[in-house]
Write a protein that binds this DNA or RNA. Structure first.
Lengths: 242, 242
DNA sequence: AACGCTCGGTAACGGACTGTAACCGGCGTG
DNA sequence: CACGCCGGTTACAGTCCGTTACCGAGCGTT
């Protein structure tokens, strides 16, 4: 629920996350990766499971467009507090939170072997000046990131543990479906601890919630394998915390 | 803790929010309001207490730069869930979350009588194409908004009620100080309920936390009047939730 | 002054989530 | 195989915060 999806080379589909049906620029205006490469010298990069795509403090010089694999972004405070703030997959633009800084502002870790396109930022900026559509797209991607974070803040603040887990699964399912895969059956790329951190819960609580949703017949869980049985049940399962 | 501060006509000061000391473009590169007006047809607008600056669903056509007063932004879901996602004051850019949409994505309400500069968005975009510094500044403002939201997500997920309240007060104090006012003595512009919503707590809990911080000698509270007595005490008061 | 309303503070109780701990299964290694 | 390790699940007790309720201060209306 926290991702900037831009320049996606995935199948075109109308999106409908929360209350944000309208998209700034029509789908046909979208600059695909191919066209993007014509203006920005993109470089392929492979990242092995467990490796950092980047770490807080490293010099910021590029954005990354995820091609394959799954990544988690981790926010960490000086006092040791730490939290996963999002999961990034194919089509997601990574690094936007560090724009305007000289150093990256958070950590990004590969949850499995993956590949990204490295998009040098200064060239990207100058390209934006010459190509209005690109400029609009980058700005929109940033704004969308803000909206997604806000929506997730709302979820964190208003939903109980079980509904948070349910909402998370639904979000994963939708993103999965948007990439052309099944929206009813998928594999979790992250550990219970990562989910818990993102959901602001303890991993035991996540386990309990998953077990409960399974018992209710809304999903079928087996380790990291998830099957959505009753999406509506997930959505309206329990009531808001108030 | 959730605000895009850009084009601020406030006294220049080095900022140090969380772990983001470096700013993309040096302070002297910053485009002030005066220069901004040379390129974008800004319009003054007064908003009375309790009035909406804009509501979700209204056509999006402009950003707003807060001149005076204080505003709250409210995120709301279809199912009735609702939460304050930030407070905006002088120098803050409002509306960035709606960029790329045809309609505004949230509600913004005036907590007191105030005044804003209305910055028509399409002209702003074209101006960005002609003026690289403006473009960089807008993009940075958006990125900073993402960083602030992430930092607040971290606080929501890792801090207990009392520390959340403390962190909120410290944030307010710093923003106040950055505007040239006292960072040790200020007036809360929002009700306990608004604070509670933003902090993802109940207003009673906010009351308790304030009373406790007062009893500990960290602050002095009288209705909406806050005096910071021991900033370090506030910062390190209790430990993280873990 | 009496009334009603909103906003803020306090206290007692209960419940949801946490913290701890034990257990299980899979996997790699000695 | 035995072993330890890691990730995941489950059980139980503890705690923090939400719930409910009541009270007081400020303010506008009658």
């Amino acid at each position: 629920m926290t991702t900037a999806t831009a320049f996606a080379s995935a199948p075109t589909a109308t999106r409908s996350i929360g209350r944000t049906p309208a998209v700034a620029f029509e789908r046909h205006d979208e600059i695909g990766l191919a066209e993007l490469q014509a203006h920005v010298p993109a470089v392929r990069r492979k990242i092995a499971q467990g490796q950092y795509l980047y770490r807080a403090g490293q010099p910021f010089a590029a954005l990354f467009l995820v091609n394959t694999g799954c990544f988690k972004t981790c926010e960490l405070a000086e006092d040791g507090r730490e939290q996963v703030t999002g999961f990034r997959m194919r089509g997601d633009l990574v690094g936007v939170e560090s724009i305007g800084l000289s150093q990256f502002a958070c950590d990004v870790v590969a949850l499995e072997d993956g590949e990204v396109w490295e998009l040098p930022y200064p060239p990207m900026l100058t390209a934006c000046l010459r190509i209005p559509v690109l400029q609009a797209r980058l700005t929109s991607a940033l704004a969308e990131e803000v909206r997604r974070d806000r929506l997730w803040m709302l979820a964190l603040g208003t939903l109980g543990a079980e509904r948070r887990v349910a909402a998370f699964l639904l979000d994963l399912a939708e993103r999965h479906a948007r990439l052309g895969f099944s929206g009813r059956h998928f594999i979790l790329r992250m550990s219970r601890a990562d989910m818990a951190s993102y959901l602001a819960l303890k991993h035991e609580t996540v386990s309990r919630a998953l077990s409960r949703l399974d018992a209710l017949g809304h999903i079928a869980v087996q380790r990291r394998e998830i099957r959505i049985l009753d999406a509506d049940g997930l959505r309206h399962g329990a009531e808001a915390v108030h």
